[in-house]
Simulated assay, not measured.
Amino acid sequence: MSNVNRETLLPKVGRRSFLKMAALAGAAGSAGAINAATVTRDATTLELSKQFPGSKKVKTICTACSVGCGIIAEVQNGVWVRQDVATDHPVSLGGHCCKGADMCDMVKSSVRLKYPMEKVNGEWKRISYEEALDKIATQLDKYRQENPEQVLFLGSAKMSNEQAYYVRKFGAFYGTNNVDHQARI
């Protein structure tokens, strides 16, 4: 395949043909958007103010970062179904960033990891927390005995200053200066 000239495999598209196709794609996209406008609608005031049957409102804190903005979560049968901003929260004063506004959907996501998993023979299998922590501790101890500099401790935007201090101290006691923060990567 490496001996084949790539130019003979790819069709030639001139500037004029490209512009025609782009205009056609734009028109098709606009027509789809006009049609989709009738599919959704804004929630009514009654729908927004009325709770789900049997639900309760719980004041909580957003965990997307370390700021700790206030959220009022509506919980029905142990499931987070809707959220609102906590207007009386001293940090956020009723505001949210885009991550905090979507916290309810992140919690309900079908791809969210809900328990420890291990890949065995190419397949993911569920393991207990105790088993996961034991495996991590064993591997960390092995690396510390061989060469602690091969380990990196990575902080998170969810950490407070105090938590970042503890991660740095843990790295130092472990024997490495390899401590960083995910926001820099």
Rank of each mutant, 00 (worst) to 15 (best):
E7A: 10
L9F: 02
G14T: 04
R16C: 07
K20F: 12
A23F: 11
A27R: 05
A28H: 04
A33I: 05
I34C: 09
A37M: 08
T40A: 14
D42R: 07
D42G: 14
L46G: 06
L48A: 01
S49H: 01
K50D: 03
F52P: 00
F52M: 05
G54A: 04
K56F: 13
K57L: 04
T63G: 06
A64Q: 05
C65G: 04
G70T: 11
I71H: 02
A73C: 05
V75S: 06
Q76G: 01
V91K: 09
L93Y: 05
G95C: 09
C98Q: 11
K99R: 08
A101S: 15
D102M: 06
D102G: 06
D102F: 14
D102Y: 11
M103G: 01
D105G: 06
K108T: 05
L113F: 07
K114I: 03
Y115K: 05
Y115S: 11
Y115V: 00
E118N: 09
K119E: 13
N121M: 00
R126C: 09
R126W: 00
I127R: 09
A132D: 12
D134A: 11
Q139W: 08
K142Q: 10
Y143S: 11
R144V: 02
R144N: 14
N147R: 10
L152S: 09
A157C: 09
M159D: 00
E162D: 14
E162G: 09
V167M: 02
R168H: 03
R168K: 15
G171A: 15
G175W: 01
G175N: 10
R184T: 08
